[in-house]
Design a protein around this nucleic acid. Sequence first.
DNA 1: CTGAAAGCGCTTACAG
DNA 2: CTGAAAGCGCTTACAG
Lengths: 355, 355
Amino acid sequence: MKKEKGEIELVGVKEIARRANVSTATVDRVLHNRIGVSSATREKINIIIKELDYKPNILASRLASPGKYNFAVLLPDISSETDFWQAPLNGIQRAAHSISEYGIMIRMYFFDLNKRKSFKKQSRLMLDSNPDAVLFAPYFHEEAIQLGNICTEQHIPYVLIDSNIPSLDPLCYIGPHQLRSGYLSAQLMNYRFSSPSKILIVNIAKEVDDLNNLLKIEEGFRSYFTKHKSQHKIIKIDIKSTNYLSVQAEFLEVFDLHLPQAIFVTNSRVSAIADCLEKHGKRKIFMIGYDFLTKNIEFLKKDLIDILICHRPEKQGYAGIMKLYEHFVLRSTVPKLSFMPIDIITKENFEFYDN
Amino acid sequence: MKKEKGEIELVGVKEIARRANVSTATVDRVLHNRIGVSSATREKINIIIKELDYKPNILASRLASPGKYNFAVLLPDISSETDFWQAPLNGIQRAAHSISEYGIMIRMYFFDLNKRKSFKKQSRLMLDSNPDAVLFAPYFHEEAIQLGNICTEQHIPYVLIDSNIPSLDPLCYIGPHQLRSGYLSAQLMNYRFSSPSKILIVNIAKEVDDLNNLLKIEEGFRSYFTKHKSQHKIIKIDIKSTNYLSVQAEFLEVFDLHLPQAIFVTNSRVSAIADCLEKHGKRKIFMIGYDFLTKNIEFLKKDLIDILICHRPEKQGYAGIMKLYEHFVLRSTVPKLSFMPIDIITKENFEFYDN
DNA sequence: CTGAAAGCGCTTACAG
DNA sequence: CTGAAAGCGCTTACAG
């Protein structure tokens, strides 16, 4: 460690104040576009700021400012059916940690994936806490639109993660481009099967709303084959029970009927299918599914799942909070859309994956 | 923005000092393990720190401390042959930007990939600048070992990126697990070719040193087939000219002789091969190569390259600097090895890739 | 071995 | 509309 004060020229509020013949308080007012400065003074100071190419010291700024922000987050509960939401939660906590010194408090709210009402209830609780900004996963379509609209009314910026709702106008959407994600999966199928094959698409979702997202993925998947004139035979099944046993029963019936050569499961529930095939001693089948979950990785290791597509859920949570931080603290403009990478995970690279 | 001072209990040096009946200066001494404190006092203070679960305010710490650090970086020049090194450079600049307020200055040094001597020369220049820490890409084996050893002698922590040298003891290595990267590529080949096929491995590198890295990838690639008893016929060629035309001439000879069904190029020079096939109107061949470079992406789009493997070069640069920052400013322990994800890039997901 | 005081660069409450 | 002064939490040079 060396002291090299001399090296860096000090252009701070003091220097600006000195040049403008005003106090630092006035400089501060101009810097933050606060009222109570004559336009002559404001003008003069602004010119000096430009000249000096002044960059505020955020450390000092945050240290001096008592300003605190409350962010609120509404996510699905981590359920026994899937621990997918653990990852965004981790990302949010990582972000919370890294900006905690900037006076940002994050309050968490959780809803039950199987209970539409709990989303509403938690939304209300969240809004009652008077958050300065909000991040949520718009799992239930109608309810999410309502929540988004209330936020807009109350001038609370909000960020959407995991899936987007086009009719809303959030500060930012962070998540996958679902259509393209399905498209990619189809390309991978084509790598494996250059000749026409029988492919089974499996959608597993209790609520029709969630199904909507899966349908976008399915649409992308199908459109690839259409575009590339692939002659695969595509069968599909929508399973609306989330319970393990009934998922497997419904699946097995269709499976035994059609005996497909490949399976594409449009969400993280792919392990339920893999498990089913294993339990019933079915022969190995090429299978693509979604998400880096412990259960899924187990089947990847055992060659029952071949490929998992992932959209960096941890990063979605992290980036979501950071966008809010950038908006509030750094006052920078954040891009409206932030698509996550569509990552391809196999048995041979999952160890190195970073969520 | 709200003032909610009351909400947060203040556990700072002041409170510790108050409880221990000492001055904040003494608390500071204990906090940083400085000399000049009686062991009784030190003990007492340490207990209070534990009790309070005190976390220092880094903002205030950095603001108060005049300490400045000079980091130095030695990377290959961005050449006309490949712009691979642009990405780590971008990452380094991003890191430089995000920690500039912590008093960290980063000086850059560049060497010529084709001139062993320039590495030596720039190493010397870099060391002459008396850096507090160093980050470099150990491109030339012997010279890199020398540089690493000098750093160790002079107690300058250093970080290695892109490729590792096992005999050195850097603060941290950040880059791919090359063996596993080759292994993954072989798995992807097997997805495409379930029946025995003829596969051509192409190594392109002027210096034997660089070739060493490629050979690790090749080794991983071959070992996958061995382990899975794949009956592919593997041919390989080492091209030691980096010049475009001679690369293509050498390649074409082998290609026409063996007419392989697939090609695996072990580094970013894969575009040279794709270009050659295109120019000579060869039929489409399955090709896997390395790195997210503009040229490579062009061929990905045109279906001349099928898969690019990438190791997040931008992140390597960013993480490299951040490790140094964590070491110096946060004084935290950094893990010795930080393997990058092995990403699979195709025509259908490259748009969303984040380096 | 220890402490009082000044200061890092910015912000704010208060007084005028 | 403007400024003097105090303070954010930590560090340091100096004095004892």
